[in-house]
Design a protein around this nucleic acid. Sequence first.
DNA 1: CCCATGGATGTCAGTTCCAGACATCACCCT
DNA 2: AGGGTGATGTCTGGAACTGACATCCATGGG
Lengths: 189, 189
Amino acid sequence: MGRWQPDSRGRLQEAALALFAERGFDQTTAAEIAAQAGLTERTFFRHFADKREVLFGGSEVLKDRIVAGVAGAPKSNPPLDAVARGLDAAAGMLGEFRRDLASQRHTVIAANPELRERELAKVGDYAAAVATVLRRRGVGEPQATIAAEAGMTVLRVALERWAGGHDDRGLAVVMNDAMTQLRMVATDS
Amino acid sequence: MGRWQPDSRGRLQEAALALFAERGFDQTTAAEIAAQAGLTERTFFRHFADKREVLFGGSEVLKDRIVAGVAGAPKSNPPLDAVARGLDAAAGMLGEFRRDLASQRHTVIAANPELRERELAKVGDYAAAVATVLRRRGVGEPQATIAAEAGMTVLRVALERWAGGHDDRGLAVVMNDAMTQLRMVATDS
DNA sequence: CCCATGGATGTCAGTTCCAGACATCACCCT
DNA sequence: AGGGTGATGTCTGGAACTGACATCCATGGG
């Protein structure tokens, strides 16, 4: 056994989620999280750029999955269909995750403006990446950005409904549904 | 003349924009902004909840304008058309503003992740307000949220193109254009 | 004309977030 | 055995905020 317990990063994430859920984000200091994980505050900030970031560990992986989904769509697909492939990939990945943890995380984030801000920024980052892929597929501007942003809106709305417990169907279904609603809303006029 | 110079809030906003543009957001302290405006740090934080907020002074007014625009749309308008009315109102208000200041502000925000986060949060707030108005008009969920969020996506994209100098037409035109692109992207499949 | 009140500001002290610089310790490789 | 490496701890300090309290001036009532 090493000098240190394994997976410090994971332990910090677990401790943070537990403490945030228990006392709230503002009432929890980075030092407390670190202590709970058997580490020091300084080490916390070596693993996460700021206190909020500890809740967004899998974000990069998810982005890559989405991007891969979009990139893997048939060349003939119109932009929003390609984006829908990315959403399928996202639903697949998030579906593997434990539902209760996703829900707890969602509750914590929903309760704090700073965390909601960060979440929006993350999804905005996905959108930028997706737009880049779309452009590489020959989609022009502003269509690429609009399709990407609209798609990430669908992701956020579906995730909110699913993790918020307002829709008990599978995430993939909820997301598909939201995409359909977007198409209807945009068409019907 | 009073004990204090008038319009402290406005002076703080001006000073902040100037300093941010000159040295960057991170390299400017709240105390420096306050000093430039002839005030103290404590007073800065009495006017603005945090350092970023000083760049988003007119945000509430803009939200009200958008909401009013949506609420004022003919009852018969489908949701996204009503939202388009809100966007017209926004374009009208932002058009009154000095273009160079809007551009400078946009440059500062674009250069800093924390500021981009805050901007996303603001627009997300508009979306929530618009969704509420739509529901009051009888639009169900998730259509209301989707229409509102899609509309605010159009706002962001158009604003980015306009303030970023990528499109020299009037803001209203750019926004109308973006809305049309959204409809096309969502339809064509 | 004086004084009480209230709003905007200043002063001071304290907490927390976050980062730079450097030390330490176990492990690994040769 | 010894040096290199990576993760962690320690120390220190700046900057973002916040609460408590003092101050000053405009205003209005007496």
